[in-house]
Amino acid sequence: MALISVAVTYRTALVTHRLQDEARSRAKVELAEDLFRRYRVPLLASAESLQSRLHNVLSRGFLRGYLHSGDSENQHYVRHNTVYVLAEHLAWLEVLRREQRFLDLESVKSTKELFAAIQRIHHPLASDGLPGPFRVFRGHQRAIGEVMLHRVESSEGTVTDVLGYAAFCDRLETDPGFASWFSRLLAEVDDVDAGGLRGNERLVILQNELVGLIELLDPRGDWLPLKHRERLRRADVVLPTSRTPNG
């Protein structure tokens, strides 16, 4: 009888352990789904804004006519808004990073795929193995994301939001500390315009990876039309083999 009792106890413990593991796995999946649900739309919208701007700049000469038009209002807009759409996307990436930091969701397939896609966006920006402007080291990427965030009151309480374009422009004019994070990027908009496809390998690769993120977030085109996901040609673009700075 003692052996039977030990066997039953052991089997019960195994079943309990398995049920607990299954419950934890379900809870992680639910947390991942909730995270995806809450940030899918703003992350998708910011990725689309940035990839669309890069596509227009690099394949259609979007900047050229406005930067040299002599119209100061147009010059201000294309320079500041181009930097803004990059900063906005980095801000939403920072929000997502903060939200998932303590949730231990690395084992969830959808989360793993999402953050792998995000890392592929961080990489070309940070790499010193790619020529061209708009190199932003990883720490600088996070810092830009941080300064773009602010707290707002909503029906759900106090939540984190990202500065809108008007507030961004106002902070550039009134807050020297804030402006210092963007001064080099604003100056390099002219270099982006002058570089073309061959001189902007970094941004060509970035645009491709943004389209990849959009495809992951909206595979069937429920939010963004599939026809608006054209990748820039990268036949002449070689991924870097040199080090990518961690700083």
Rank of each mutant, 00 (worst) to 15 (best):
V78Y: 01
A23N: 07
L130P: 03
D71A: 07
D34E: 12
D128C: 08
F115G: 03
V29S: 12
V85D: 02
R98K: 08
R53Q: 06
R60E: 15
E106F: 11
R64T: 14
E22M: 04
T82Q: 02
N56R: 14
D21I: 12
L54W: 02
S72N: 10
N74F: 14
P133F: 01
H17L: 15
G139C: 03
H76L: 08
E99H: 08
L114P: 09
I118G: 09
V78M: 06
L67V: 10
Q100G: 15
T82K: 09
L43R: 06
Q75N: 07
N74Y: 12
M148N: 02
S69M: 03
V78L: 00
F137V: 06
F134L: 09
R101E: 13
L54I: 01
M148P: 06
Y39C: 09
E99G: 03
V147R: 06
T82C: 04
R142E: 14
F137T: 07
S107H: 02
L93K: 00
N81R: 09
V57G: 10
L54H: 04
H55P: 02
E48A: 12
S110I: 08
L31M: 14
E146N: 13
L35Y: 11
R64N: 11
Y66A: 03
S72Q: 10
Y66Q: 05
Q141E: 04
